[in-house]
Design a protein around this nucleic acid. Structure first.
Lengths: 152, 152
DNA sequence: TTTTACTACTTGCGAAATGCAAGTAAATGG
DNA sequence: CCATTTACTTGCATTTCGCAAGTAGTAAAA
């Protein structure tokens, strides 16, 4: 149960404790990449439109790994590549992220672009969207983690 | 629709846009204070156990105000005091925060202290907890904002 | 009335985090 | 073998945060 951030909290408030783990700009974007966008490699996350720096990406992956939210395996096709994936602790943030996306759709909409089918689900059936998301993560795992029951 | 953070996003992703507004450690704690803990004054937030600095608190209040999430009025009893409160845009973050609290309860529980009645609601009836929270905010507003329909 | 205390900030400066761009080591691919 | 890819690491400038003192306005106490 490592406390992985420089804001080692003096608080026992649940929200403060959560923010100690994921309360910075970049950590949640990394989790977003893994959860919704199928970005499992360092270079994929690095090339996302938000423009994270290499040192920050590396640092955040380390922290999330240390906190038990993500893990990684060597890529099955290449020894120089690496695949990151969400552990259950990380997956359980799907509700937080989904409600954030709903909030953005409601309050920041001129800035936000969501594909229409996704937007429809997000607005009308958020639970269904969550379910679909988690299923897709399951399928990814079946494909890539099936050979080793590693922290599955 | 001001973009109030240094991370002016190059992204149209809803999550990235949300994190541009509230994706730092302190902003969500300010919103938590207003939403769940009845801390409506600067000095109350300053004295919370997380230990925010005066300049950061002042800065975050300004940003949240500029982003339309909160507003303030003079305290009815004293010209040197000030009351901050959530606008609808800020209140709509109740779902995000509630799910964060649930996540903490599930995954960070040795660190987290939640009063038993609240924990029961959080775990079993989160929607009820949200409803109660919003009602309490309504009542606060009826008491303090009733004299001026100010951005109510 | 004057003095003291409270309130919401502001400020100066050191510490910490972030961002940029170049560099490095290991594993391919040609 | 050389060139490219991949996942980082590093040096340094910039930005943000944290600490503590300071400020201006509004009471409250003497």
């Amino acid at each position: 149960m490592a406390q992985t951030t420089e804001h080692a909290s003096r608080s026992s408030c649940p929200l403060a404790c959560t923010l100690d783990v994921i309360g910075d700009h970049w950590s949640l974007l990394v989790i977003r990449d893994l959860m919704f966008l199928g970005r499992h490699e360092y270079k994929d996350m690095l090339n996302a439109e938000e423009g994270i720096s290499t040192n920050i990406l590396s640092d955040r992956l380390k922290r999330l790994e240390a906190g038990g939210l993500i893990d990684s395996i060597p890529h099955p096709e290449s020894g120089r590549r690496k695949l990151y994936y969400l552990l259950p602790k990380g997956k359980d943030l799907v509700h937080v992220l989904t409600h954030m996306a709903r909030w953005a759709n409601q309050h920041l909409s001129p800035l936000v672009r969501i594909p229409p089918e996704k937007r429809a689900l997000l607005v009308n059936k958020p639970d269904k969207l969550i379910e679909i998301t988690l299923q897709q993560l399951d399928e990814w795992e079946k494909q890539f983690l099936k050979k080793k029951n590693k922290k599955g």
